[in-house]
């Protein structure tokens, strides 16, 4: 495993403890998850106990200790989206992909998660796929988007 980027990331925040979460986000953006070895380096450099780091990583929902799928599907857990029928979309997603929120499909293609209100309530129910927002979703539209991604053989984002 290449640990070189870690020094750079920590350096960018001057190794400050107040930047721990930002550092972890940057690390996860780079490696697509938080490898144990990297976290041990962070613990040593920031002089924070490994128990604390492990507690932080397992506490906050954004972090993943296992590699995430190629496509990330995020459903908004907000009230407005719920009232507009988000529950059905979530049921369809879990059935279609055969995974629960927080998990990744076995072929590592899709990661599903629910997130607490994305803040775009006016266009709910909202689905975020690979950084792109889709508004006014229903189970049918959501299914179509996933199916299109699934058959996209080329690399990169949809």
């Amino acid at each position: 495993m290449d640990y070189k980027p870690v020094e750079g990331i920590i350096g960018r925040y001057q190794g400050k403890r107040t930047a721990l979460i930002s550092i972890l986000h940057d690390i996860q953006d780079h490696y697509h998850y938080l490898p144990e070895g990297v976290l041990k380096k962070v613990s040593a450099r920031l002089e924070m106990g490994l128990s604390n780091i492990y507690g932080v990583v397992t506490f906050y929902k954004s972090f993943s200790l296992v590699p995430k799928g190629k496509h990330s599907i995020t459903l908004c857990l907000g009230t407005a989206c719920h009232v507009q029928g988000r529950g059905k979309i979530l049921r369809e997603m879990t059935k279609l992909l055969n995974i629960e929120p927080g998990e990744t499909t076995r072929d590592k293609k899709f990661s599903l998660q629910v997130v607490n209100c994305l803040g775009v309530c006016a266009i709910g129910p909202v689905m975020l796929v690979d950084g792109r927002y889709y508004g006014e979703m229903n189970s049918l539209k959501a299914k179509r988007i996933i199916q299109k991604l699934g058959t996209n053989k080329g690399g990169g984002k949809a």
Binding site: T18, A19, I21, S22, L24, V56, Y60, S62, F63, N116
Partner: peptide, 10 residues
């Protein structure tokens, strides 16, 4: 002023 980020916790 510095920015501190959240990690996904209400």
């Amino acid at each position: 002023v510095e920015i501190a980020q959240g990690g996904g916790a209400f």
